[in-house]
Design a protein around this nucleic acid. Structure first.
Lengths: 163, 163
DNA sequence: TATTGTTATACTCTATAACTATA
DNA sequence: TATAGTTATAGAGTATAACAATA
């Protein structure tokens, strides 16, 4: 249990993080802003997903997901197929063009991080990622959905649709 | 120097951080959204500041700062006095009402963090704050200076003046 | 001519609410 | 009645560009 002075410092760092995020956004191509990119990333990692699952993983409203997904589908980067098990649902899947796009985005972000974090040790990067993951868990528990349902850390390139 | 797999994981965590930020924003009072609050926080920490200095510390454009500052000044939380040394500048200062407001905001954020991070150790909180501070430094170094794209070294003729 | 700050405009992300179609 | 998804609307944050005043 930490003291208020530490919390204050943490809040300051949270606020300062905005600058990092903006710089990440700036390197995104105009036709694939960060919101859409995050959906693409999720599909690349977890395989086929339903809209509602994407919204849950991103911790955003379903309406937000819907917009980003429509954006991606218009450009042919993802495909929305009806779910045979539930006709209300739609299954999202990366297309080959989407995977190419995703790889390209990945190269951009990796290059930027390599530039900026060139003097960070492997351990430091891992530690930051780990603490931020825990932070998200600590915040997510009460907000997202009753079940965080941690996805298996498998190879995820071709995970078959759950269900 | 970390590998691309670690960078990929870090990018994912950066994206997930949005959920934390949104929850922090949600607890802000309607008349003092996060953008304005960050200006207030800066003044509480550093004392009197010039507009341009605030913009620099927040890593946002001066026009953005101008809007947030106007918002705060309208509500009597800060005061803009002319800088006697440079009549173009304005010095920002927290008013007593502004300090009260700031304390109240501080209580809100502290309470939220105490709820969410109740099971974090003092050391973990400190470590996260430290790593995020370093992250900001790593990103900030190349950005604070407002010319990412160096203009042509020549300046004898003014090409863009066409109309 | 360069810098400080203001304002107008536009774009992205987000949530809420109303709506359709399924369950 | 409840859930999955779409769409319209509104609010916040930000950047760019044009502008005013001063250095």
């Amino acid at each position: 249990m930490a003291g208020t002075a530490q919390y204050e410092e943490l809040v300051r760092q949270f606020s300062a993080f905005g600058a990092v995020k903006r710089e990440m956004n700036r390197i995104m191509p105009a036709d694939c802003p960060s919101g859409s990119a995050s959906v693409l990333t999720l599909l690349g990692r977890y395989g086929d997903l339903r809209m509602s699952r994407v919204a849950e993983l991103l911790s955003v409203d379903l309406s937000v997901t819907s917009r980003h997904v429509a954006h991606l589908a218009e450009r042919g980067w993802i495909e929305r197929s009806p779910d045979p098990a539930d006709k209300r649902s739609r299954i999202l899947r990366l297309t080959p063009a989407g995977r190419i796009r995703l790889d390209e985005l990945f190269r951009r972000t990796t290059r930027l991080l390599a530039e900026r974090l060139g003097d960070w040790s492997d351990e430091e990067v891992g530690h930051l990622a780990q603490l931020m993951a825990r932070l998200r868990d600590s915040f997510g528990e009460c907000r997202t959905v009753p079940r965080p349902a941690p996805p298996p850390p498998e190879q995820t390139t071709r995970t078959p649709a759950s269900t």
